[in-house]
Design a protein around this nucleic acid. Structure first.
Lengths: 345, 345
DNA sequence: CTGAAAGCGCTTACAG
DNA sequence: CTGAAAGCGCTTACAG
């Protein structure tokens, strides 16, 4: 048994040229059936796998995708990104791509890392996450000329995300809070509060918009029933107390963290009020909180598909908005039974 | 400006040979100061970065480490692995290594992935996590001959982990629960319960051991004050009720998930009992639960150091056990003030 | 359908 | 201190 089989050593052993072996692996249709079978058996027996570096050097394709691991300041909400990464790794592998994971200090550091990776030809594309208002990264990646896809739409005061000159996938948060709110209206609620972080264009604003639409459509009061505060359980609890004092009977929250606090406020007052969070995090599941499930697996699959298409040279920009699904677990909500656990990893 | 600078194009431009440029990058001490400076300036100006694949092919080193993203069945406890991965990515990058992330169905799938990566020469080493009783992976990696380090000691009924023929880093869970329990004894508690998943060698058993040592040493009762149940908030709550009924005034839990449930049981009874969890997860922070902080950053740094040393040919096996740190936040604990938040990411 | 040739971009001994 | 040569292991046109 040689040190490690190569195309050369295998070919010599079989009495064929090494490009025949290469063809067996890369273009089997060009090889005669008999040869094909013979070579394949030998490849199998030797446990031969082409050396990645050699292939990369020759094809100028790394079959690797860059992914920045975001600092999870908040491990509760970081859950969505974690789940997204899992799904992405899964689908990437099936497509023959690997994930080059890295962490960065800040966005400049992040961009420098992409630049270095591109210069070293060690990645074919980038998966961006956690886009925010006036995010400089898409433009810089566009300038770099590296294919990329964003999980998260470009947030902007002026521009329409559907006009963006790059691919993105996002979850329609507004649709989620709207569905939740309409459901609460159907259940008979007339004063439905909303708790979220400050309202500049972004995730919180998007979710706020859904609540507002549903409440407006139903002719219910809105103004004094929205409270804006930083994302945190304590803040959510305080905000909830304010809203409950204003007569709210149900609270729609922009995150499970806020909902966690809101639920405590409700229990401070002896219960009987409904709280709904967002993201269906592990805490929500453990505490049987109502929440909204993001279709993370579908988002990851879609993002990967868009990116691979880009890498293959497609120039057209695509934008995909996916609908989330409310999950009601709280028995307080009349007539509702808890839905089966969604074991999204 | 050429398509993309290579050693060749840079050398031609500067009127030197390409190995001189290569020397400037890899062995600057062999180059005359004047040449060095001139070449460096050109490299900088051109934004030249060596193509990774070519270097890999030549040096037979990928400078990449494999890491399996574990399915996080439980996003609360999965937090430690997430934090570990962050730190690992950080330190790896500083050491010039990248992380090849992948997900796998099960351990067979995981092993096959390592084998393929080794065959394709696309990784230099493996970082193993989530070791368990009779884990088959270390032996298989040993047989593969690929350098690896394990975050988690080898759990076994018979063998001493310090005799293992491979490198591992782990957190001394027993030391954590022992410290916590002794502290509770100092605070005057005489009936201190313990809640954990079933006691086969592993993390739960290790943490149990610390509690038992402290309780035994203090001459307190143990037998009826330990309850074993699956890891979950509901289970923790139920177990806590059992122990509280047996007169426990403090509850040491093997996880924050169990502690979350136990805290609810305590509040069911009107409070006044102390609960301590483990891992200092985001939930514990949000809910001001007492917990134990794992030194994740140090574990990641140590693991990487051991692995790189292995990759460099060191044959000796090293085993490192790191002490965790209790964090008391609950004001119920007399005389204690909340410690400053540990913002481990 | 199969094989001889060229080359991807680097680094590593080895002469000079 | 600097340069000419060889080669890492592949794949891709191109002949035959």
């Amino acid at each position: 048994m040689p040190d490690r089989p190569t195309l050369e050593s295998l070919a010599a052993e079989l009495g064929v040229s090494r490009q025949t072996v290469s063809n067996v692996i890369n273009r089997p249709e060009r090889v005669a059936p008999a040869t094909l079978e013979r070579v394949r058996a030998a490849v199998e027996a030797a446990g031969y796998v082409p050396t990645l570096a050699a292939r990369q050097l020759r094809t100028a394709r790394s079959h690797a995708l860059a992914f920045r691991l975001m600092p999870t300041f908040d491990g509760i909400n970081g859950h969505i990104l974690d789940a997204f990464l899992h799904e992405l790794a899964d689908h990437a592998r099936r497509a023959g791509y690997s994930l080059a994971l890295f962490s960065a200090e800040d966005e400049d550091d992040e961009m420098e890392t992409y630049e270095r990776m591109v210069a070293a030809r060690s990645i074919d594309g980038v998966v961006l996450t956690s886009t925010h208002l006036d995010d400089p990264r898409p433009d810089r990646l566009l300038a770099l000329g590296i294919p990329f896809v964003s999980f998260g739409r470009p947030w902007s005061v002026t521009a329409d995300p559907f006009d963006a000159p790059f691919d993105w996938v996002d979850v329609d948060g507004a649709a989620g809070t709207e569905a939740v709110t309409r459901r609460l209206v159907e259940e008979g609620h007339r004063r439905i509060g909303y708790i979220s972080w400050p309202l500049e264009p972004g995730v919180g604003c998007d979710r706020w918009d859904g609540w507002r639409r549903a409440v407006d459509d139903s002719g219910l009061a809105t103004e004094e029933l929205a409270v804006y505060c930083p994302d945190g359980a304590d803040q959510g609890r305080q905000a909830a107390h304010t809203l409950l004092a204003r007569g709210a009977t149900a609270l729609v929250c922009a995150s499970d963290t806020l909902a966690l606090g809101a639920a405590r406020a409700v229990s401070d007052l002896g219960g009987g009020r409904v709280v709904v969070g967002f993201d269906n995090t592990p805490v929500a599941r453990e505490l049987s909180l109502n929440s909204v499930v993001q279709p993370v697996a579908e988002a990851a699959r879609t993002a990967l598909g868009l990116l691979l298409r880009r890498i293959d040279g497609d120039q057209e920009s695509r934008h995909v908005l996916l609908p989330p699904t409310p999950v009601f677990r709280d028995r307080t909500l009349s007539g509702l039974t808890a839905e089966p656990e969604h074991h999204q990893r």
